[in-house]
Design a protein around this nucleic acid. Structure first.
Lengths: 361, 361
DNA sequence: TTGTATGCGTTATCAC
DNA sequence: GTGATAACGCATACAA
């Protein structure tokens, strides 16, 4: 047993003395089968170690049990949190996950979407690289219209209004972080933003601006640095900021990679976070926790975002023409001390403020 | 165009005024087709935005253009290096990659291998979680025997002798690292090893022992700590080691996660690497480089391992009964200073020793 | 409740 | 070179 050659449904049917239709019904629990027959068939299947062919099922059903996940950077830990959430829900619903990494390259993204076309996937989950690339927008809406639901995660795209979305509440997350910096007494607060065309980048900058404005601090453009989502550019941003005649006393970093680049600059120049300068990052960085390096961050539970996205997809798969739904996932400010600096005085007593040391599991 | 409904090969054939067979030939460049007809058919396909169905092709061909990749921990950066290498070669050969994450759980691994069965994949690449789990071993050899080639990456499994393997040269990598520590003058050198049943763990310990022995240093069991591949346990190992009456002056860490745990202990206790204690880790840790924290490591180019593995798979796909081949990927010692300690004196002048600051791209 | 027959979109084996 | 046509393994409408 186990050593048996590959069997098909017809052979099982013959061995069980029933028709292929009956075997099919047993496999799919589709229609009613006499309990006796059912058990007998199951027995035969087990005995012969039979596994139905997903390929054949997909062809007949005209749709596969696979969802495509298209992400821009597999190296970024944010995304495997996302994938984990997606996978968990997908598995529960007997879906498999096909991952495409685009390396932030709209061209590769278009290729991926093309490759996906020939596989008749049940749905697509995507954090788009080509947010301004017409190919991406066009192909995604085409998918949606031809019955393959699409969920946008983390980033809007041009002409993507008809698609489901799962986004973090970037604006309010940033607002909260910058407000905390202000509460700590900082008033020269910089932001290292990313690639402007990405919606989260824009929203985070918006939150930054609102926090300053609402607290009566003037927004100074020289304290706004634009990077490219990557660590190296952010390092340069940090250098520019710190060489201003009045350098910021606190910096809000727009994503995890850029936070790392900023920290490198500080490390290299002996500037201590939480001491000489206040730092808050966007997205928790697991490895810093493992290293015991305390960094305050805006955390957005990427696992939840993944789950939510897959749930939206399932919903849309069941109801083809459900109206687009837009889910916003709340962020959470996790304070670990790096937001402080010795050179500033907290504006108000913050005794009793909760400091969460770890993300929940 | 683009808005067109899904077409099949028959419709294209009709539109082009040829038979399905001819269209198929054009698609697959399989047999010779008159250049004129070929061009005409291609024209029609393009015009109608036709994409052949991979599902149907797979069914007919009795094999899909998908390879399954089964890994134990998607969160570990080592593995996405691996995946990147695999994907690169796979894409070039028009294969897609289906990723399964087992979380080091043999049960989930068995489930994954079961799920893979129904998809008729072209091959399987796996870093096994269930190295001692008979299910894993049995299923993998069954796959191999039934014509679906399997390549083991990074870890041997029980009864897996007939399978292709791609392994790092763990023993010599460790030997080299520990030898360097000895050259730096260390003689109380500890190792934080991992889960004993994993072959790389065993081999790395072997290299450690050989280095000590060959340099006339007695191996002391108290300097050998066994963890579980994870950071937290390693933290505890480090604590035990450092509370010995004669604590080690250098520690060799058996994998990236364990290195992080060890570093956390040192951070928390103000013990400086490269200064108060010598540290060399196994596997480069990208994020430390991004942070500008210098750590000497044994690097094993996981991307290369991935490429090699995929190449082995392709080879075995073309030649069903090629004999099992075992590829060993060399490691490389990258010295960044953390191997030194002020309390010891280098044994020999090492002027001119190359110190590579970065991994090549 | 069960069986028969057809279709799903390809590839491959024949003929011509 | 090209065209019919039979697989491939399953799901399902329709019959019984």
């Amino acid at each position: 047993m186990g050593m048996s050659e590959k069997m098909n449904i017809r052979e099982i049917a013959d061995l069980a003395g029933v028709s292929v239709a009956t075997v099919s019904r047993v496999i799919n629990h589709s229609a009613s089968v006499k309990p006796q027959t059912r058990e007998h068939v199951q027995q035969v299947m087990k005995e012969h170690n039979y596994v139905p062919s997903a390929t054949a099922r997909d062809l007949s059903f005209q749709r596969s049990q696979v969802v495509a996940v298209v992400i821009p950077d597999l190296k970024n830990p944010y995304f495997y949190g996302l994938i984990e959430g997606i996978t968990r829900v997908a598995e529960k619903n007997r879906f498999q996950v096909l991952i495409f990494n685009t390396n932030e390259d709209p061209g590769k993204e278009a290729e991926a979407l093309e490759a996906i076309r020939e596989r008749n996937v049940a749905g697509i989950l995507i954090t788009a690289a080509g947010v301004r690339d017409e190919r991406t927008g066009r192909m995604l809406t085409e998918y949606q219209e031809s019955g393959t639901p699409v969920v946008l995660i983390d980033r809007f795209i041009e002409d993507g209004d008809t698609l489901d979305t799962v986004m973090a509440d970037n604006e309010s997350g940033s607002y909260e972080a910058v407000s905390e910096l202000i509460a700590q007494g900082h008033d020269r607060i910089a932001i290292i933003a990313g690639e402007k065309s990405l919606s989260p980048v824009y929203e985070r900058e918006l939150g930054y601006r609102r926090a300053l404005t609402e607290h009566g601090i003037r927004v100074r453009e020289m304290y706004i640095a634009y990077g490219d989502q990557m660590a190296d550019k952010s390092y340069l941003c940090m250098r520019r900021l710190m060489s201003l005649s009045k350098p910021p006393t606190a910096v809000f970093c727009g994503n995890n990679q850029m936070t790392l680049g900023a920290l490198r600059y500080l490390n290299e120049h002996g500037i201590r976070t939480g001491e000489d300068i206040g730092i808050i990052g966007f997205d928790d960085i697991d490895v810093l926790n493992k290293l015991g390096i305390p960094l305050s961050v805006v955390d957005r539970s990427e696992k939840d975002m993944g789950k939510k996205a897959m749930e939206l997809l399932l919903r849309h798969m069941k109801n083809q023409d459900a109206p687009a739904r837009h889910v916003s996932v709340p962020t959470r400010l996790i304070l670990r001390g790096s937001e402080r600096a010795a050179c500033v005085e907290p504006l108000q007593s913050r005794a009793g403020r909760k400091r969460k040391a770890q993300k929940e599991e």
